[in-house]
């Protein structure tokens, strides 16, 4: 294996080494700042999610990338595709709203269902829960990009892959000098 790039690393002075670390920091930061910026713009805590199951086919397929927005006071109507969290489940679910009940005092409850599922989501909710409330809904799907999320699915299925890729990229960014 060609290790001459390591020589290059050894030739650096203190300032160059520090800049190398800063450069690494800026690459990570740029990604994070774009993410945080999107959070602010969309109002959603996770503005981009990957569809992990086929429960919303043919609208969304496994591996599609969804753009989410969240407006805690905005209306939720039958037919909207919402993202919700269930107690005891880590991964949020993206399904369509099937029924809405609203009271005059503003309290509302919702029932959801996956387009490709034969029954509604009551079986997925926490034990004893029959309806979703406003606080459970963390966003609405506003747009999607097909296929791109397949990388995420692969990394989810093989977690080691994620660490290998991250470690390799990290080492290369730190050690390699650009101009």
């Amino acid at each position: 294996m060609d290790l001459s790039f390591l020589d290059e690393f050894k030739r650096m002075n203190k300032r160059q080494m520090y800049y190398q670390i800063l450069n690494f920091g800026m690459i990570v930061s740029t990604a994070l700042m774009i993410w945080k910026g999107l959070m602010v713009v969309t109002g959603s805590e996770s503005p981009i999610v990957v569809v992990l199951s086929g429960s919303m086919e043919p609208a969304f397929h496994r591996g599609d990338l969804l753009l989410l927005t969240h407006d805690p006071k905005g209306p939720v109507r039958v037919g909207d595709i919402v993202v919700f969290k269930i107690e005891g489940r880590e991964i949020p679910i993206v399904h369509r709203v099937l029924k809405v009940h609203e009271k005059e005092d503003g309290y509302a409850k919702y029932l959801t269902k996956g387009d490709n599922n034969s029954v509604d989501d009551r079986g997925l909710y926490a034990p004893g829960q029959y309806w979703l409330e406003r606080k459970d809904i963390i966003g609405k799907a506003k747009g999607f990009v097909p296929y791109i999320g397949i990388v995420t699915i692969l990394m989810n299925d093989y977690p080691q892959l994620k660490y290998v890729i991250l470690a390799t990229l990290g080492i290369f960014v730190l050690v390699r000098r650009e101009n």
Partner: peptide, 12 residues
């Protein structure tokens, strides 16, 4: 660059 990275660290 340090200032830029400090902003991002503070935000995170």
């Amino acid at each position: 660059s340090t200032v830029a990275v400090l902003f991002s660290l503070y935000a995170i």
